[in-house]
Computed example of a mutant assay.
Amino acid sequence: MSFTSENILPEGTAYNKLINLIALLGYTKQRNEFKNQGMLASYFWYEYKNYRSYVGVELDIYKKDGNILVYTRTRSGRSYWDLEHQNKTIKYIKDYFKGSFSTDEGKNRYFIIDKKVPTELEAGLFIARWVYKNALIKPKIYLDSRNLKGDISRVEHTGISFIDDLNPRFFSNNLLIPYLVATWEEYLKKSFIVILKYTDNRDKLFKEARFSVNNLRDISAGNTSIEEALVEKFSFQRPRIVAENFKKVDEKLDIFTVLNKPILNRKVSLFDSIEEIVELRNTFVHEGGMDLSINDKKLKVIIKDFEVAVDRIYDRFGAYYNFEPSRDF
């Protein structure tokens, strides 16, 4: 589902003036190698500051029967501010150039915007969760589409270690472990940065931080934010350390409890499960050691463990910061 609009400008409208208005609205021109008939240009708007955009606003300009047509589109995952800017774009073009417009709501009717404006903290935590969900698409597609050939690529173990050690399927499965840990770590870092930006306890952490000269140069040059520089001084792989890190931001923010519960009917908690996966990652990365027990079924369980852990943490953020976690990815 998407939200689309069309502005029909009067004949004789100055194209350059339209381009200037679009630039003032913050759009940047996009290279379009697949221009449709009559298309003049494509533009895109995205607000990078303060987590305001989820998908941005697409804008295309066409010319048909002597009229300039302006189309805008936001995808279903749009944020409050994406849709607000889409309405603003439609209105400014209508007010400045006259003509008419239509949206999915009808002729000369603007999109209906949600009454509730999300906080920037809520938006930032949602984006972190969304990015993580997208990151898991790759390994899932990879597992479903890889085509390992030969008798040695057995689905299950033979029980003979030197044969299993040469099985490309087990090697392939072990290769995914560092990626899964990296995406888990990145999700937690992004969430930590969001909370750090909007917490009252940030000054204490900044005072304790020992920024290097390179850190200070990057911050001064605008290449990184002070929050991004600080987060690199923490580890976000092992669940116990992760829980301790978030308590440094807010003593009452407890994610240990939600991870210390088992998943489904298993006796092992997510806390211990992910701790074990991190150990597997370290052994593989630093020593080249493989876990020959990781067949396809177990790998999918590992992926599921990370997904459930991230969802539990995200839900905990929602409960603590008083917002409804969104699954509109």
Rank of each mutant, 00 (worst) to 15 (best):
S153G: 05
T74W: 09
Y46K: 14
I226P: 08
Y96I: 15
E186G: 05
F246M: 03
F111I: 04
I19R: 11
Y51N: 14
R146W: 13
M290I: 06
G124A: 02
F271G: 00
I112A: 11
F126I: 00
P325E: 05
A243S: 07
F171Y: 13
F170R: 15
I226A: 07
L21P: 04
V249C: 03
L280P: 01
V213K: 14
D95I: 03
F170G: 03
L280M: 13
E279A: 10
K247A: 01
K91S: 14
D250W: 01
N16W: 09
Y51R: 11
L253M: 06
W45R: 10
F126L: 02
T183Q: 08
K138P: 08
T103G: 02
I113A: 05
N245A: 01
F97K: 03
N36L: 10
N265P: 08
V268K: 14
I195R: 13
S273P: 02
F171G: 12
I22N: 00
R129S: 01
S293H: 07
T13D: 01
N201A: 01
E279S: 12
Y48C: 14
S326K: 11
D151K: 12
L230F: 05
Q237V: 04
A309I: 06
A319Y: 11
I93N: 06
E156Y: 08
N50S: 13
K233H: 10
R169T: 09
I68Q: 02
K91E: 14
Y46P: 09
N50R: 14
A14N: 15
S172W: 10
E47S: 15
F34T: 10
K189H: 06
F234Q: 03
Y314W: 00
Q30K: 15
Q30S: 13
A128C: 01
Y27T: 00
D151R: 07
F211R: 02
D272E: 06
G106H: 02
I19T: 09
D328F: 13
N201T: 06
T283P: 07
D165P: 06
L121H: 02
T89Q: 07
V117A: 04
K304P: 07
L259W: 02
Q37A: 07
K207C: 03
D250P: 04
L175I: 08
G150Q: 01
R52L: 13
G12Y: 09
D60L: 13
F271K: 01
R169Y: 11
G222R: 04
R240Y: 11
W184F: 07
I302T: 04
S153P: 02
N7Y: 01
R109E: 12
T13R: 08
E279H: 14
K248I: 08
K49F: 13
V285G: 01
F3P: 13
Y142P: 05
A41Q: 09
R52C: 12
L136H: 00
